[in-house]
Design a protein around this nucleic acid. Structure first.
Length: 565
RNA sequence: UGGGGAAUAGUUUAACGGUAGAACGACGGGUUCUGGCCCCGUUAGUCCAGGUUCGAAUCCUGGUUCCCCAGCCA
């Protein structure tokens, strides 16, 4: 079975793949070519991940290809730094454009010739009006626009003026090239749209070769045609541009006819995805940068510890339609948990340590106890964890006066130390302020490994770290960037920032094996969540980011208790 | 009385004239050396009104609501 046939039988079934399948079957096209077209003026975010999964996914599933093309038509806003960062992000997500890396700027010469072609056929004219005059004569949503007084210039004059625009004879804003379509169209994009403007700016790739640049409308579809893109997939807000896209292609000597299809963009709860607002968060210092783990950017998610596979799974589950949507972040979190449950090695880490002395355990003795690396994956093997007389437990795992349903440690109560022994709390030591600062316990030597030969059961199993063997480090806990599921639009959206989106914990105690975690590999801190190693880690001082917590039914019980009070 | 797009459980999404199904979430239970994972169950939906049809989420007519568009941004 060919790849195309395979996709036809088992592939995802959104309306775009349906179109592709039909086009292949009908002979409309013999091979499918898509493209992912970022503008190099910002970083990629999870919404782009949806687009990449669609474009690269379709290319691959139907035995075609997907290009990476930078829409670099506005030198005033674009920077080289973004070109590098975007390529890194696309690769990290797992996509490969092969030889097919393009820039709209690669096509500038052809675009210029095509603009002349339009002029020669009476389909474009040089307009001397100012930007304001053009705006004032564009009409409104309900009223038609008025023709420019320069609309009927001769071909010769237009050609001459356009070439002089290129030659740099004019200042920015003096003149533009406009397509000559229909000033009375209900679709504002058809009201003689500007297709070339003068910009005396240095372009990241073409330098000072050009001082006129095509607009999106005169670059995107044209680049598609030059590169042989068959299915140009974009978001819904471009649907209004499709008539112009088609009109330009129809009036240009293109080697083929690409077609545009639109799908709805991704929205996520508890965050923002508009480029403008993301920039604001970074520039005003509400987050620490584009790769702050609270950011929905690809870089942020990567640093947070999300595996690329989880993002791709998320994109698959979200689907492709034309309806507006807001996806709950809970789905993203689920994708990370599901993947990491299968893959992440289990480790013990005490985030908020409470010292515990096991009084009947021999002083100076150290035992190495077997611990399973991943109960979901036998192949992950085992490790040995050092145990000794003094250990750390999680502060939250002890309560002096526990409520019902609290199954952890309390005075006189016996619990299991995971992979170690049963211990019983015999004494509580407090400071002058009444805070619990240390526990005294006894252990049952017969329960070595974690099981009682007499068959007695305990209700709780706690993680722990041996004091003397503990590696000290930092843990960063993340919560939703915005408190409300749907932050308000407008500039006041900053008021919705969650003041508790980041909690930094110092003096965390890690089991020795955690000193060897590689950046990018997420581990599970038993009973707590999945954590990724942050690049801020120094030798002997690991820093971990919480990707997502484990589902926590105890927290739910507690929350309910609070609500009932 | 501008143009374009969309409406199915709380959230996403399937069903292409023939039993409205899934995932996430929520809730309850089982299991458990992670209050995790896993398993079982409960909850809950076709925007409205007509029409066509043996039969409508799907086709037709008329409404309603929401989103996008008036950059020399993409």
């Amino acid at each position: 079975m060919s790849e195309a046939e395979h996709a036809a039988e088992e592939g995802a079934k959104d309306f775009i793949r349906e179109v592709v399948r039909e086009d292949l079957a009908s002979g409309e096209t013999s091979t499918v070519v898509t493209r992912f077209p970022p503008e190099p003026n910002g970083y990629l975010h999870i919404g782009h991940a949806k687009s990449m999964c669609l474009n690269f996914g379709v290319g691959e599933e139907f035995g075609g290809r997907c290009h990476l093309r930078f829409d670099d038509t506005n030198p005033a806003k674009e920077e080289h730094e973004y070109i590098e960062a975007i390529q890194r992000d696309v690769r990290w997500l797992g996509f490969d454009w092969g030889e097919h890396l393009y820039f709209a700027s690669d096509h500038f010469e052809t675009l210029f010739a095509w603009a002349e072609h339009l002029i020669e056929n009476g389909h474009a004219f040089v307009d001397d009006q100012t930007a304001e005059e053009i705006r004032n004569t564009r009409g409104t949503l309900t009223e038609p626009g008025q023709n420019s007084p320069y609309r009927d210039r001769s071909v010769e004059e237009n050609l001459d003026l356009f070439r002089r625009m290129r030659a740099g004879e004019f200042s920015e804003g003096d003149r533009v090239l406009r397509a000559r379509v229909d000033m009375s169209s209900g679709n504002i994009n058809m009201r003689d749209p500007v297709i070339y403007r003068i910009l005396h700016a240095e372009h990241p790739r073409t330098g000072n070769t050009w001082c006129i640049y095509p607009t999106y409308d005169f670059a995107h579809g044209q680049s598609d045609a030059i590169e042989g893109v068959t299915h140009s997939l974009c978001t819904l807000e471009f649907a209004d541009h499709r008539p112009l896209y088609d009109w330009l292609i129809a009036n240009l000597p293109t080697p083929m006819v690409p077609r545009q299809f639109e799908f709805s963009r991704l929205n996520l709860t508890h965050t923002v995805l508009s480029k403008r607002r993301l920039i604001q968060l970074v520039e005003e210092g509400h987050v620490k940068g584009w790769d702050d783990p609270r950011m929905p950017t690809i870089g942020g998610l990567r640093r947070r510890g999300f595996p690329p596979e989880a993002l791709r799974d998320f994109a698959k589950r979200v689907g492709i339609t034309k309806s507006d949507n807001v996806i709950e972040v809970a789905l993203l979190e689920h994708c990370a948990r599901e993947l990491l449950n299968k893959r992440a090695l289990r480790r013990m880490a005490v985030l908020k340590p409470l010292k515990v002395v096991i009084e009947n355990y021999p002083e100076g003795e150290v035992e190495y106890l077997d611990a399973v690396n991943n109960p979901e994956d036998e192949g992950a093997g085992k490790r040995q964890v050092p145990f000794s007389r003094e250990i750390y437990l999680e502060q939250g795992d002890f309560m002096e006066d526990p409520p019902r349903k609290f199954f952890r440690l309390a005075p006189g109560r016996e619990v299991r130390l995971r992979y170690a022994y049963f211990i019983t709390c015999t004494d509580v030591i407090k400071d002058d302020a009444g805070n619990v600062v240390e526990l005294r316990c006894t252990y049952d030597p017969a329960t070595r490994g974690g099981d009682a030969p007499d068959g007695r059961k305990v209700k709780g199993t706690l993680h722990w770290v041996s004091t003397e063997h503990a590696v000290d480090g930092e843990v960063r806990l993340y919560n939703h960037l915005f408190t409300e599921p749907e932050p308000t639009m407008g500039d006041e959206f900053l008021a919705g920032l969650n003041p508790e989106s980041l909690e930094v914990l110092n003096g965390c105690k890690f089991e020795p094996a955690l000193a060897e975690v590689n950046e990018g590999d997420a581990v599970q801190f038993e009973r707590q969540g999945y954590f990724g190693c942050d690049p801020d880690s120094g030798s002997g001082h690991p820093v971990f980011n919480r990707v997502v917590g484990l589902r926590d039914s105890w927290a739910k019980i507690q929350a309910k208790g609070q609500a009932n009070k």
